[in-house]
Computed example of a mutant assay.
Amino acid sequence: MTGPPPEVEPPPTSATPAPVLFIGGLGRSGSTLLELVLAQHPDVCALGEVVHLWQRGLVDDERCGCGERFAGCEFWQELGRRAFGGWSKLPLDRVTELKAAVDRTRYIPRLARYRLPDQLRREVHEYTSYYQRIYQAARELTGATVVVDSSKHASLAFALRHSPGLDLRVLHLVRDSRGVAYSWARQVRRPEVVDADAYMPRFSTLTVSGLWTVQNGAFHLLSRAAPVTRLRYEDFTADPQGWLRRIRELVDLPDDPAAGAILRDPPTSPSPAHTVAGNPLRFAAGPLRINRDDRWRAALPRPRRTMVSLLTLPLRLRYGYYRGRREATT
């Protein structure tokens, strides 16, 4: 791909950049719940799925996790001013062009190289510089130490790994493929869409099985070149306080008792996170409670359960999702 030089200068790099926690995996694996838990402490700024900001925020003007539409959310408008001098000055067409050129699953084999070809390296550095500006502005705006991006896409994680100004920490979140297949088959309304009735996409068992295998497998490939911590959704919901401590340690945050206290005694109204995309859970009212969702065990028809089990068998075995073995974190 050829194109004009960047219209926005890359952000200044720091000798010791602050860590960015990237939550990776396949959607419907519990990333929104995990992100909301992390965001309850002021040293963490959760941004949601930043990969969707360009379309869902800037173009579609969908609702932020705070309830306001993107254009009316003071947090995102101030962040845009700090990052780019205002969202109107962001070369959105250029970002979209770069995203199509480098941030696709099909490009992971190229992005997995230790050294990128010169043209690809320039495009990746330019593309990730926009993310870097957003992360940096979020820290400045909130005073948080760590920014969380729950974009999940493996291709974006591979691209961000090559950004010279980022200290990327990857948390690979995995959920039983049968639960994921059940969730993607359900009709779920998207409350962030204001002007129409919109629903999250629905995928067949065959499609979900392929996506689950490819996305999770890609993070195994990434772990050969960058630190990746794996967490099973089932383990997080079984011991949220223990995993909260471990995740904070992963991003060099101290074990603050106040963070765990939020889980022991959830506030009536948890602090809203200014998340740009994610599961409808981010709009839920009431206390933030950690409950494992195992509805698929009763609701997923046996033929579909058998199909997804067989199609995803290699990684299910690796993660401990099979009968006869105690389910422990891998």
Results as ranks from 00 to 15, higher is better:
G320D: 15
A225Y: 04
G324T: 13
T2W: 11
L253P: 15
Y135F: 14
T13K: 08
G179L: 14
R186I: 09
P201V: 13
V124Y: 10
V308T: 15
A284H: 15
L33P: 11
S177K: 04
P287H: 04
H172A: 00
C45N: 05
D61N: 12
L171G: 00
T330R: 07
E62W: 12
D265G: 06
R316K: 13
T275Y: 00
L90F: 15
T2G: 12
P191L: 07
T13L: 00
G67Y: 12
G278S: 03
L47R: 02
Y321W: 15
E68T: 05
G65K: 05
R323N: 00
V148Q: 01
K89W: 05
R106F: 02
K152P: 04
A157E: 08
A198L: 14
P4V: 06
V208H: 13
V8S: 05
T213I: 11
V174K: 01
G286C: 07
S177R: 02
I290K: 07
A238N: 11
V276L: 14
V276Q: 00
R232D: 11
W243N: 11
T205Q: 05
G217W: 13
F203E: 13
A218C: 12
A259R: 01
A159L: 02
Y135G: 06
R202A: 12
V180G: 03
V20L: 10
R304W: 12
L253R: 05
Y199E: 07
T229G: 00
P257N: 06
G27Q: 13
D60E: 09
R289L: 15
D255R: 10
D195W: 10
V44W: 09
L206W: 02
F84Q: 14
Q55W: 15
W87C: 14
V51T: 08
T32D: 08
P240N: 05
Y114M: 12
G48P: 01
L156V: 14
T2E: 07
